[in-house]
Write a protein that binds this DNA or RNA. Sequence first.
DNA 1: ATTATTTTTATTTTCGAAAATTGTCAATAT
DNA 2: ATATTGACAATTTTCGAAAATAAAAATAAT
Lengths: 230, 230
Amino acid sequence: MNTAASSKSSLSEQAWSIIRTAILNGALGPGAALPFQMLQNMCGMSVSPVREALTRLVDAGLVEVEHNRGYRVTLLSSAELHDITMFRIKVEGWAIEKSIELGDAEWEVNIVSTLHRLGLTPRDTPGGEGQFDLWESRHLEFHRALTAACNSPLLLQTCAQLYDKTDRYRRLSQTVENTPRDAHAEHKDLAKAVLDRNAPEAKKLLAGHYQRTAGLVAGYLANDTTAPAA
Amino acid sequence: MNTAASSKSSLSEQAWSIIRTAILNGALGPGAALPFQMLQNMCGMSVSPVREALTRLVDAGLVEVEHNRGYRVTLLSSAELHDITMFRIKVEGWAIEKSIELGDAEWEVNIVSTLHRLGLTPRDTPGGEGQFDLWESRHLEFHRALTAACNSPLLLQTCAQLYDKTDRYRRLSQTVENTPRDAHAEHKDLAKAVLDRNAPEAKKLLAGHYQRTAGLVAGYLANDTTAPAA
DNA sequence: ATTATTTTTATTTTCGAAAATTGTCAATAT
DNA sequence: ATATTGACAATTTTCGAAAATAAAAATAAT
C-alpha cells in the first residue's frame, strides 16, 4: 500500500507538478539554480524522478540546463514576451477561427458558462495566496473553451504550451498593473465576437487583449532580462 | 541533428540520438514496443539515460507512454498527417513571410546555396542506406534557410519540431510515390518566389507543396492508423 | 469445461551509492 | 602581486540492484 493522499500517478509526475508550481508562483524565481539535493528535499524523493521532471520542464522552456553544470529556472525577457505574444496571437487566432467554423451548440454553451464563472472570480484582493491560482485556472478554462472546437490536437496542444509559457508574465502583469484596465470587459467582448461567429473581429480583439498585457509587462521587464532571485 | 554519437555529449544525448534515428529510419516501426532491456542493449548503457531520452521523445511526439506499461513508438495516421500539414502551412508560411520582410543579402545567398546543394543530392537510387538521410539533411537546411530571417526563436523552433514530426511521413512518401513528380522544380519555384519577395505566391507554393505530399501519403495510410511493425 | 484465485514471471519505476565532472582555495612559482 | 598548479569539496551523471506494478501461468473451484 502506498501513502494515501496521492492518486496513482508516478513520482516523476508529482515532482513535475511540484517544481512547475514553484516556478510559476515565483517560489523559484527566474534564474534560480536548481540543485538536486534541494529538489529532492522539496519533493521528498530520490534523484531519478526529479531528473525526469526537469527534463520535461526543459522541453517546456521553463527550465534550462547546461551539461554537467546544473539546471536553472529560465529568465524572463521582454524579447521573449514579445515573441510569444506575437506567435500566440496567430496560433490562438487560427484556433478560434476554426472553432467558429466548426463549433456546435455545446461549444457555445461552454463558452458562455466558463466566461460567467470567470466573471465571478476576482483576480486578486481576498484570500491572498491561492486566489490568483483559482483565477488562473478559470481563465485557462475560458480560453480553452474558445478554441475547443477547432478539431486540431496540434493547435490545442500548442495553445496550451503557449498559455503555460506566458503564465509567469501574466502574474507579473497582475503585480505591476497600475492602470486597472477592465480585463473582464475584454473577455466579454471577445466571447461576444466569437459567439457572433465574427472571426475577424474576434482575432482583432484577441490581438489587442494580448498586446495590451505584453506592453504593460514589457515596460516592467526593463531591457532584456530580469535579475535572478533567491 | 547529430546522426552520429558526438564526442563529449552525455549518454542520454547519445541514447536520444540512437533511438530517435532508429524510429525515423523505420528500424523501430510505428507501434513497436520499446522495452528497456532492448534499448539498453541497443545503446550500451544503463536505464537512467535511456529513460531520459524516452522522456524527451515523448515530448516530441515520437513516442508514447502508458504509466507502468511501457513505451512504444507513436503510430502514424492520416488524421495526424493532415493536422500537421495544416498547421505547418500556416506556421512556415508565416515564418517565410516575416523572413521576406526582414531578410538581408546574406539570407538570400544562403537560400541560393542550400537550394543548389539540395539539387545536387539525389533523393534515392544510389548508395541505398544513407542516401535518404543525406537528402533529408540538405532538405532541412533548405527549408531552414527560407525561414531563417524571421527573427523569432519560437517560430524557428516550432518549424523544426514540425519538420521532425513529418520526417516519417516524408520517408513513406518516398517509398510510395508512384507518380514521380518533380520535387526539385517545386523547390526552385518556391525559392524564386521568396527571393522575389513575393510572399503570397511563396505561401501558395508552400501550401501546394505540402498538400501534395500529404495527399499522396494519406492514401497509403488507409484509414487512421498503420499496422505495427517488428 | 469455464471461471476465479493464487503463484510465478517479466517489466517498469525508484532508490542509494559509485563514477565523473566542475568549482574552490590554498600553496608555489613567476 | 599575479598567475599556475594540485589537492579537496560539491554537484551532476550514471550505474546496478531493490521495490512496485502488470502480465502470464498454474492451480483450485463451480
